[in-house]
Simulated scan of single mutants.
Amino acid sequence: MRMAELSERSGVPTATIKYYLREGLLRPGRRINATQAAYDEEHLRRLRLVRALIQVGRMPVATAREVLVAVEDESLDHHSRIGAAVWSLPDAFPSTAPGTAPDAAAPGTEAPVPDATVEAAEQQATELLVRLGWGFGSAARGESPAFRTLVGAIAALERSGYPTTVEDLLAYGRCADQLGVVDIDMIERYEPGTRQVEAAVAKTVLYEPVLLSLRRLAQAEESNRRFGEGS
């Protein structure tokens, strides 16, 4: 297909497609002549992934490029490749990063604050993973953006006067364990290799608002059952 058809099928303006090509987010098409190139279904799929990362994931172009580099890293085994691609995604809640000021003006600008609360939160998060039987070594935990976010969230709960316990977190962890099974089951529907890695990235980005929305709807439903008197 020519760029005009790629634009029509994807809903992305041609000027934006050209920008993505210049920035290395999209592979060049097959050259037809000096001024035209042909694109295929792989370009269309990748373009949709790029749009998901930038529009839904709200990530900068440079970060999206880093994620796509991880997606294409065929030097890694399949598990490591999926992990590298997903871990390249930016923190969904940067204001909860551990070791940062709780009242900073904006995410990403917080000054490091040595804090015993963060150390306790890290111990709590580590105990949680051990009790769930999740095999993260200390090095892997330290490198994981998700683990750092978890630690920051636990510390923020403590500072806000709503401390949590490992027992509280275990209920969430067990639900998350089942969600992990559902996620990987869905990823396995796609052909192995780059297609599965792309699916892992896309579904991580696109399903996070689904999970947040369902949790809030479930809270409203349970609140109505307990306190709404049938309203």
Rank of each mutant, 00 (worst) to 15 (best):
E72H: 11
A153L: 15
L212E: 15
K203I: 15
E127V: 03
E66W: 02
R159H: 12
R51Q: 14
A34W: 11
L157E: 07
G29C: 10
E74W: 03
A220G: 04
V71N: 04
G142E: 11
R27A: 15
G99F: 01
S7H: 08
R45K: 09
P114E: 15
E122W: 01
P114I: 00
A121W: 04
R65T: 02
D91S: 14
N224L: 15
V197M: 11
E119Y: 02
G161K: 10
D103K: 02
L132N: 01
A106Y: 04
A97P: 00
G142I: 05
G11D: 02
V61K: 10
R225H: 10
L150E: 08
A106T: 02
P102K: 11
T16E: 10
A4V: 14
L68S: 04
A220D: 13
Y20F: 14
G152S: 09
R22F: 02
G135F: 00
S144N: 13
Y20I: 01
W134C: 08
A52S: 13
A200N: 09
F227N: 10
D40E: 13
R225A: 09
V205I: 12
R46S: 04
A202K: 04
A52I: 11
A62T: 12
A37M: 12
Q36Y: 10
R9Y: 05
R46Y: 03
R48P: 01
R189M: 12
R131K: 04
R141F: 09
R22P: 00
L76F: 04
A176N: 07
F93R: 10
V197F: 12
I184F: 13
G11I: 03
H78E: 15
V197I: 10
L6K: 12
G137W: 02
M3P: 12
S95Y: 05
S144I: 06
V182Y: 15
A64L: 06
K203P: 00
L157M: 11
E167V: 08
Q36C: 03
W87H: 14
Q196W: 08
A111F: 11
I54L: 15
L6D: 11
A101I: 03
F136E: 05
P102W: 08
F227T: 06
S10G: 09
